[in-house]
Design a binder for these strands. Sequence first.
DNA 1: GCCAACGTTGGC
DNA 2: GCCAACGTTGGC
Length: 159
Amino acid sequence: MAKRRYWLMKSEPDVYSIDHLAKEKQDHWDGIRNYQARNHMRDMAVGDMVLFYHSNADPPGVAGVCKVCKTAYPDHTQFDKRSKYFDAKSKKDDPRWWMVDVEFVEKLPEYVPLATLRDDPALAEMLVIRKGMRLSVQPVDKDHFKHVLKLARARTRVR
DNA sequence: GCCAACGTTGGC
DNA sequence: GCCAACGTTGGC
């Protein structure tokens, strides 16, 4: 059994937020149209943990946690002409774009803004805080993952 | 294989 | 709304 891995996935809350996922309990993560991001999704295993990041938000930041519950399979929106994610060059017998299913784990007790991540020396190497890092699906070190959760519980911790 | 033009992401 | 940082496309 492979070791559990950790990831961060970005979503615009206006389109799909942690609250949407909380309501749906489980959903597919469609619309990834970047090869590196796709490759990361294909590397995911059931049980891998994912930081749910709100991009293009005010402020942007980590809003929750979800868990991979189905490994990569073809993203159906690439074959749907009416979808904004339609890709005429993708073939049914050789799909270009893939997606995973995730299940809701929690909405963080406290939202962790990007600026907070940036200010934390423990997260200096974390990919998401790098300037110009547009990658929408990215790996996260276990230590970084745990640290973000710690930040999210900082003020609710019993002292 | 290079690289200019163009499109997109996403913070600010 | 601006624009920097990337990724992709396509001519050569």
